[in-house]
C-alpha cells in the first residue's frame, strides 16, 4: 500500500513539489541521508518525463506518484497515462523537430535515472507507462529503555 500518493496536473511548476514531497517521505522512511539527493533528482527526472509525455500527447489527466514504504525498502512509482504502441513510440501530438528534441531530453532523463538508481524498472503499454525505483532503508535505531 502506498504510504503517500500524489497526483498533480501535468505542469512543469509542480515537479518541484513532487521532488520535495518524495524527499521528505523518503527521509521519514529511513532512506540514507547521503542518498536523498539521488532520490530527489531521480523522482524529478521521472516526473519531468511524465509531464512531457502528457503535454505532448494532449493528455489532461494528472501524473501519479506513489511513495511506498515497505520493510527494508522504499519505492517510488511515477505513472503517466500516455499510450505507447511500440517501444520508443510517442503519443500523438509530438511532431517535427520538437519531437526529436523532446525524445533526446526524454532519453537523457532516463539515462540520469538509470545512472543514479540501481533498482529501476521502466514499463510502458497502451494505457501508459510507469517508472518504479527502489532504495534500501535502514530501520531507525532501537530506543533504549
Amino acid at each position: 500500500m502506498a504510504t503517500v500518493e500524489l497526483r498533480f496536473s501535468a505542469l512543469p511548476e509542480h515537479v518541484r513539489t513532487a521532488r520535495l514531497v518524495a524527499a521528505a517521505v523518503a527521509r521519514r522512511a529511513g532512506v540514507d541521508e547521503a542518498v536523498l539527493d539521488e532520490v530527489r533528482l531521480a523522482v524529478g527526472e521521472a516526473c519531468t518525463r511524465a509531464v512531457g509525455l502528457h503535454q505532448s500527447g494532449g493528455i489532461t489527466s494528472p501524473v501519479q506518484v506513489l511513495l511506498i514504504e515497505e520493510e527494508k525498502q522504499f519505492s517510488i512509482e511515477v505513472g503517466d497515462e500516455a499510450p505507447r504502441s511500440a517501444p520508443g513510440d510517442r503519443a500523438p501530438g509530438a511532431q517535427g523537430d520538437d519531437h526529436d528534441v523532446e525524445t533526446e531530453e526524454d532519453e537523457m532523463g532516463l539515462a540520469v535515472i538509470s545512472g543514479l538508481v540501481d533498482d529501476v524498472e521502466v514499463t510502458a503499454g497502451e494505457h501508459g507507462g510507469q517508472i518504479r525505483m527502489t532504495w534500501p532503508t535502514t530501520p531507525p535505531a532501537a530506543v533504549l529503555p
Binding site: 533528482l41 524529478g44 519531468t48 533526446e104 531530453e105 537523457m108 532523463g109 540520469v112
Partner: peptide, 9 residues
C-alpha cells in the same frame, strides 16, 4: 542548488 537533465539539455 539543483540541476536536472532539462538543465543539462
Amino acid at each position: 542548488d539543483f540541476l536536472d537533465s532539462t538543465g543539462l539539455g
